[in-house]
Nucleic acid binder design. Structure first.
Lengths: 331, 331
DNA sequence: GCAGGTAGCGAAATCGTTTTCGGAAGTGCC
DNA sequence: GGCACTTCCGAAAACGATTTCGCTACCTGC
């Protein structure tokens, strides 16, 4: 049994109320007793029971983030997000908790929220369905969506500028002379994928290059899933001189496949990624990519949840954060 | 305000006790009222307040895992562990929570444990000091150490067989004819690193190959930290024909550096990793490695915490799990 | 000396559950 | 009818903190 408030009270022959007030900085307690209490608390390694505290105060000062670990991409992305999110929640006096979902059952998320385990929740793009969002709205439970734009003015979200990022990549590739540029997209029809594709198409149009559908291929995010599409592109004659991958992890596959085929990156084929994950440093050359402001996204997302907690009436915010092209060698 | 037990009670004109008993499967409630209660609970989206419940029951059915995300390795390793850990905790009726530590302050871990936020905790090798362990023992708080052997019969731990893994790698390399085998180790003096080094040295001795200290180099786990040691090894004449890296992530750097120098893997230099992380699939050829039973480690670690929760008097267990050499092309 | 103020403390209610205990009503048996 | 059981339900006490409110001293100023 850990020591409780009452333990301290008994030991010092004080009432629990006084001890509580001493620990919580109330002014109606003399500095003498305050010191006594603080010393005793330290000696006994006192830590208030979070259950009791949460129950009485009606909040937990915890923010949840739900994680599905089946995708390597998610883990990698999250590890970029977390430092910023943790720092910001620390500053807000909250703690950030990561919940692990079994087989991505969104019901668990609602359970945790309704049970009052957390005050607010961050929704990662792949981890919810529209029913979850509806339920959260109905419960008036604070949440923010990360990485996907939700066309509903009641929900806050933070997304990187997918369109502009792709334009930046394309403009760079076009500027250095590429004309046959392949584009790898993902099968899911999300606003993110659409924005990227649109960036690609608009850039081509602006450069007055005709769209060639054989240069647009699909790829998934599992390990090795970038290999086959790359081979498919290499089979074209002439093959593209640049490949714009949907993600850094895909770009890794692309580079490996090209090098295995005896081609040099970027001399023979330039390759670009997207996101700016750490995986981009695990190839030689390193991957030229669009760096998402990962830490900043983490910060903003927590900040928005926190604002919502402080002023429940505040309107939802939909933020697009600027991204930046970083050239690291592969293009 | 979410609906509470009392809400249901009022609506059905029952007492809170009866409602609680109906929901918790007590036998002294008629099947009629039980059904009424269950239906009402469903209609109102009732979810018991976890704070109230935890407070009253004196436990939370939650297990904590503390995470420090500064190291890519940790994230990668953890994502291998988690599926098993989550599944097992699910089966035990517990929930697995991941806590994010700011700047790796072990005091936070003790706070969370003492506050009763979780019933037990899993310590990842890099996230504690001996003081934390002492404090947990003193508090009699259930915990299990993962990935590092602790020479103390009061603490349970689960570790892969580092020594045997390295022997397996070495035996394979020796069997295919390698004689100049380099070894990359990490600067920290942990039992894991020592066991690996010993495996390397014993294998050499068994093959009657003299130890050459120039072939033993140190490397860290940050991105690119495998590059310099590899160049250092390539500067030797003759250079080693095989490189045994301390980790898959290091092996990635090694392979890239070798290929960038125009060498073929594994024809010119064979490379092996350790751990069996997903990163091993992101090179071509894929990395031959020692596969840790990651899922199994996750399972066992949760299982041990759970056993400790169910029978507090049970003795601590120190488990070494078998590892397996998997040849994927790089050696 | 007295009204009004302040400083310091404790009593008690409260948060939403769980769980023990006892009581009321009904049943079966002799 | 009386006795022992069973069945079903509610009252009430916890769990450990926070917070409101009121009470006692003591002080201050006139």
């Amino acid at each position: 049994m850990p020591t409780s408030l009452t333990d301290i009270a008994r030991r010092l022959e004080l009432s629990p109320s006084t001890v509580s007030k001493a620990l919580n900085g109330y002014r109606d307690v003399s500095s003498d007793t305050r010191e006594m209490v603080l010393r005793a608390a330290l000696e006994l390694d006192y830590q208030p029971s979070s259950a009791a505290r949460d129950l009485r105060r009606g909040r937990t000062d915890r923010i949840g983030l739900f994680l599905n670990t089946t995708l390597e991409y998610v883990v990698d992305y999250l590890s970029g997000i977390i430092p910023g999110a943790v720092r910001c929640s620390q500053e807000c006096g909250k703690r950030l908790l990561i919940y692990t979902l079994t087989d991505n059952d969104p019901g668990q998320l609602l359970q945790v929220c309704r049970a009052g385990e957390i005050d607010g929740v961050i929704l990662f793009s792949t981890h919810y369905d529209s029913h979850t969002i509806e339920a959260l709205l109905e419960d008036d439970f604070p949440f923010v969506v990360m990485g996907r734009y939700i066309p509903d003015e009641r929900v806050s979200c933070v997304v990187p500028d997918y369109y502009d990022g792709t334009r930046q990549i394309m403009d760079h590739l076009l500027a250095v002379g590429h004309r046959r540029i392949a584009f790898m997209t993902r099968p899911e029809l999300t606003t993110a994928n659409e924005a990227r594709l649109q960036g690609y198409l608009d850039a081509l149009a602006a450069a007055e290059i005709a769209r060639d559908d054989r240069l647009i291929v699909e790829t998934r995010l599992e390990p090795d899933s970038g290999v086959a599409p790359t081979r498919q592109l290499l089979a074209l004659t002439p093959h593209p001189t640049a490949i714009v991958a949907a993600h850094d992890l895909v770009a890794v596959d692309v580079i490996n496949t090209l090098q295995a085929a005896g081609l040099c990156v970027p001399q023979d084929v330039a390759v670009t990624g997207f996101d700016g994950l750490r995986a981009g440093f695990r190839t030689l050359p390193h991957i030229s990519t669009v760096q998402q402001p990962l830490e900043r996204i983490g910060e903003r997302v927590v900040e928005l949840v926190n604002r919502r907690l402080n002023e429940p009436a505040a309107p939802a915010v939909q933020e697009t954060l600027p991204v930046q092209l970083v050239l690291r060698g592969s293009a």
